[in-house]
Amino acid sequence: MRAKRALSARTMDAPASPPAAKFDPAAATPFFTSRGHAGWLGLQYSDHGDDWVELELPWREDLLGESAQQVLASGPILSLMDMASGLAIWKAMDDFRAIATLDLRVDYVRPARVKASVFGRAQCYRLTRSAAFVRGLAHDGDGDDPVAHIQAVFMKIAVDPRKPHGD
């Protein structure tokens, strides 16, 4: 129930003292990005707040979409936003629990600049008992001029995530 109190504390009124953080995105990101798909992409921690996390996807030649244009493919942006969304949810829950993506929508509003890192910023704006709602954006240096906007819904997984059919 402590997590619940921490959540209600981070409303408009700033709490007198911040709740003890159980999930620290800055410390947790290297764990997630040391292996697997996030590791292969080279995702790095960039910034975070109470209910949002920003990751950096460094530019890399083998992540290009159209070879003629030196622009990142949209697939890595999906992965970036999926990962940033997960971290934002764990930050908002202040807990690390297994979650699964249910629905993820990406609107690509403009191509990322050539050879630019892309930053993915996701905010978990609503948590329920079983679902987490996320919105976010991807930008290439200026958060006011995004390259993409996202909306996503994740489900909390009730059982052991290591067992097949665990969702």
Partner: peptide, 22 residues
Amino acid sequence: SDIIEGRPAHMHGGATGGLLET
């Protein structure tokens, strides 16, 4: 393979999305 793995023994949602997009 390891490069498409998300949570242990499962495919990363981003890699699934990349396959769909391709």
